[in-house]
């Protein structure tokens, strides 16, 4: 069984309810702030690391539900740049957890490819330990042709950092005459960012803030859904409730803004450069 996509978490009743909810509009991109692992550990009197492990298991269940619901893109906030401020022990545990999970993903890569899951790790990768940088780069390269579900994992990420990195690329684009200054507008910034706009953002554990996650992307049409449940206790019913909420409140779909050829060329160029950089990281 794959540890990344839990196949055995859907009963007949679940499947039936998924089918009913799927009749309506389903978000095409859903983002999660998976909050509450540590509070869960405290509540159940287990060590912090167990909470994080249970949190990861919940992610594998959620991915299965999203696949069944036909949601093509899921983004999760796994580790913020601010989280480096946590105790050395906890940061080490979280890095080890990531190492273990990404390595197991590479071991079961055939299964992942069969599911059609494409992984993208979004964040300032240079802040991660060198070996982890190489592992996550390999994960991205090996799954790049999958197209059923795109899973973005925000790791060593903050939205401000993401906007700043996009700004650097745009300023560089002007400097190297790939862009004119007037090409830089809000839409081009949106497309230069690593993550796309979600339709629905779910934050668990009762917190009602964004904590520096996707600040730019949620501006226009994202429905924010805050729920009290702790992430390791998040169930399919919570997910379906979030989707029903989305169906009641989603704004109408807008067409993508037009894009000029020069902007298109620029975006293609930075995409190619990104893949080249990842190949270099794998080689190191």
């Amino acid at each position: 069984m794959s540890s990344w996509v839990n196949e055995n978490c859907v009963s007949f009743l679940h499947l039936f309810c998924i089918k009913v909810v799927k009749t309506g509009r389903v978000p095409q991109h859903i983002a999660f702030i998976m909050d509450g692992n540590r509070r869960y550990a405290k509540k159940h009197k287990v060590v912090c690391g167990v909470g994080h492990h249970r949190g990861f298991n919940k992610l594998s269940e959620t991915l299965k539900w999203c696949l069944d619901l036909g949601i093509p893109e899921v983004t999760v906030y796994a580790f913020s740049i601010e989280n480096f401020k946590r105790s050395e022990q906890e940061v080490k545990e979280l890095m080890d957890l990531a190492r273990e999970k990404f390595r197991s993903l590479l071991n079961e890569i055939e299964q992942i490819n069969e599911w059609g899951v494409r992984l993208h790790i979004a964040g300032r990768l240079s802040l991660l330990p060198k070996d982890l940088q190489a592992t996550v780069s390999r994960v991205m390269l090996e799954t790049r042709h999958n197209n059923k579900l795109r899973l973005n994992i925000a790791y060593a990420y903050t939205a401000r950092d993401e906007i700043s990195r996009a700004a650097s690329q745009l300023v560089k684009g002007v400097k190297e005459n790939e862009l004119s200054v007037d090409d830089i507008d809000a839409d081009l910034i949106s497309q230069t960012l690593e993550l796309g706009e979600p339709d629905l953002l779910v934050r668990t554990s009762g917190e009602v803030r964004l904590s520096d996650f996707m600040l730019w992307q949620i501006s226009k049409r994202t429905v924010l859904y805050f729920t009290e449940v702790l992430w390791p206790e998040f169930s399919i019913w919570n997910l379906l409730a979030a989707i029903l909420h989305f169906q009641r409140h989603a704004p109408e779909i807008e067409d993508d803004p037009p894009i000029v050829q020069r902007q298109q060329d620029f975006l293609e160029k930075i995409e190619t450069k990104r893949w080249q950089d990842l190949e270099k990281l794998v080689g190191c």
Partner: peptide, 20 residues
Amino acid sequence: GSSCRTFGLLPWQIRLTEFI
């Protein structure tokens, strides 16, 4: 209202803003 959206509110400044 029953639904929460930011409608483009100051994206740089709202990283720690509580939405109530």
